[in-house]
Amino acid sequence: MTACKGPDSPLAQLQRWYRSPLGTELARLECACVQQLLHDTFGYYLVQVGVTESFRDALATSRIRHRIAMPCDPPPLARAPAIVGLASQLPLASDSIDALFLPHTLDFSPEPQAVLREAERILIPEGRLIVIGFNAISTWGLRGLLRGSRGPAPWCGRFRTNYQMEAWLSDLGFALERREFLMFRPPLTGALGPGGPRIEALGRRLMPTLGGVYVLRAVKRVSTLIPLRSSWRGRRQLLPGRVEPTARRNPNV
């Protein structure tokens, strides 16, 4: 994880921040966007890695049959099926997941490209990956720079641009399907007043790529020389006895 100030993990801090007025508004926008992106996404297994509490209701509307969480800090008694592991070494079988959701998981991971390689490994061909990240080219990114890497979450995260994230996805064979930008208001509680919607509308029209958060949906493509598994065959088990994380390495990490 990143060097966030505090005794617990950055994602646990981010989960608490989501309960603040600014975090609550961002969660509302993110959940609405995720619901739209999942509306036409189907399958057997949807896995969410990282912050889970704020997106529980959004994922509950998904048409995917089984929804499994891998929370940042697993509670003793989980409300929903949950797994425990590292995002860079997911304890899931290869080609077993229909959709993977990473809400700001890459912003706080010391190995974001390793996490994406694992995403590519566990997703089935044509499986969907949804990534939410803080946009480095925005007022939110500027505040992150001013606060420094050792401040509290979310400002201690490593903010990136959607261009960098899309390049990483392309290198792994993903094809981008959707790109959305959210939260054009500056990260100030005062921006949550009555004029907030007006700022959002103005930002979307005049500066559509400068939202504080980007949301990407990508699909895993495979070579046409590799035959796809027939849809009528039985699905592989989700949790095998032994998982081998991907061995691929990217020299640009």
Rank of each mutant, 00 (worst) to 15 (best):
V49H: 03
T52Y: 07
L26W: 06
G50P: 02
G50Q: 02
G23K: 01
L22N: 04
L22M: 11
H39Q: 15
L26G: 00
T41D: 15
Y44S: 14
T41R: 10
Y45N: 13
E53M: 09
P21W: 08
T41H: 12
L26E: 05
E30K: 00
A32D: 13
P21M: 09
Q35H: 10
L29Y: 00
L46A: 08
Q36F: 01
V34D: 02
S54N: 08
T52E: 08
V47T: 06
E25G: 02
L29M: 12
L46F: 05
A27V: 01
E25S: 09
Q36D: 13
H39N: 15
S20C: 10
V34A: 09
A32R: 08
G23M: 02
Q48G: 11
L37N: 02
G23E: 07
V34T: 07
G23F: 04
V51P: 04
E53C: 09
H39D: 15
S20I: 05
T41W: 13
L38M: 14
V49Q: 07
G50H: 03
L37K: 01
Y44I: 12
E30A: 01
H39T: 14
L22K: 00
G23R: 05
V47M: 09
L37T: 03
Q36M: 09
E53F: 11
F42T: 15
C31T: 10
V49N: 06
Q48W: 02
V34I: 15
